[in-house]
């Protein structure tokens, strides 16, 4: 087991190097001079410009810039943003907010989706199942910003249950509404996946055998039906974490959440190489860790995988 995790961590190294290089290159290749753009319409002082260029290593060739940046990361220095704030400080400020939001959304979509999907699957063709399918279809067809605005209007303005924008510290109660909105993108998929998986598992031979052993339905549903049905759902939900991080960009914009999405968007517009690359690197890192956790979880759910490797 430990060997397996170690190998997976080793595998992550080339992935990280590759992604940072690609992102750095893309930011470098973006048209326009980021420093000139910073000054807007004003004509900058050539001496100041030169000093800034040297400070941010913008006078160096691309490959040198990249390695200087990479070297910095190993010393714990993620570079400095154009506003003069260390990128590491921005990371530390924004990531916890977005991760909190994404985990809340993941929790909502998983718990809600699995429960509704399970009941739907067990009552295939009944009223509950039909309504769940129709509602999930509506959620699948609506873009997230529509759902976000509607939710903001109904729950924030009409009913006054939640704040329409998130306050500076991003406390949990403020994040509930954005989390629900964020969860709605993939919630419907989880419902449908769980439903079809439950229907399939229900008709498998070992379920009939479980009944023939004298087990009650109350025991068979969680132990023999739900657990087997969850294997594909867990895989989906976990890879979905990445989708949630991306989806957070739109949701954070609408609800004014001080998270990764907004900050990253602004950094891309300004062509701030080190900021963009650092954000993306951390995202890739999170993604890799989540993937590793999923694979380990998968082995936990399905012993056939645990023993093959």
């Amino acid at each position: 087991m430990a060997g397996y995790i170690f190998r997976r961590i080793l595998q992550a190294i080339p992935v990280l190097l590759g992604t940072t290089f690609l992102i750095y290159f893309m930011v470098f290749a973006m048209p326009g001079d980021p420093l000139l753009a910073l000054f807007g319409d004003k004509t900058p002082n050539p001496a100041l410009l030169e000093r800034l260029r040297q400070e941010y290593h913008l006078d160096q060739p691309f490959i040198v810039q990249y390695f200087l940046y990479l070297g910095g990361i190993f010393r714990g220095d993620f570079g400095t943003s154009f506003s003069g704030e260390p990128v590491s400080a921005i990371l530390a400020r924004t990531f916890p907010v977005t991760i909190r939001l994404a985990i809340m959304a993941l929790f909502i979509e998983f718990v809600g989706g699995v429960i509704i999907g399970l009941v739907s699957g067990l009552r295939k063709g009944k009223l509950f199942d039909a309504s769940a399918l129709v509602i999930s279809l509506i959620f699948i067809s609506l873009p997230i910003f529509v759902i976000a605005f509607v939710a903001q209007f109904i729950f924030g303005i009409q009913l006054g249950w939640a704040r329409t924008t998130v306050s500076t510290g991003a406390p949990i109660q403020d994040l509930i509404l954005p989390a629900f909105v964020l969860a709605s993108i993939t919630f419907a998929q989880i419902v449908r996946l769980t439903r079809s998986s439950v229907i399939e598992t229900q008709s498998l031979d070992f379920v009939r055998t479980a009944y023939s052993k004298g087990l009650s339905r109350r025991r068979i549903i969680p132990v023999h039906i739900l657990r087997n049905s969850l294997i594909p759902v867990v895989t989906y939900a976990a890879t979905d974490f990445g989708v949630l991080l991306v989806g957070a960009t739109v949701t954070e914009g609408i609800f004014n959440v001080p998270g990764v999405g907004r900050t990253l968007y602004q950094a891309i517009i300004r062509g701030e190489g080190p900021t963009v690359v650092s954000f993306v690197t951390v995202m890739v890192l999170i993604y890799l860790v989540v993937n590793l956790v999923v694979d380990l979880l998968y082995g936990l759910l399905d012993p056939r995988i645990r023993y093959v490797k």
């Binding site: 031979d205 009939r208 004298g214 087990l215 025991r219 087997n228 399905d302």
Partner: peptide
Amino acid sequence: IRGKLIGFVPQDPMSNLNPVWSIGFQVEET
């Protein structure tokens, strides 16, 4: 009645044991 008074041995041994639970678990629950 099932399991207690009437036992059942199914046809296909490959598909009649739940693959995610250990053999011991499946015997013990019975």
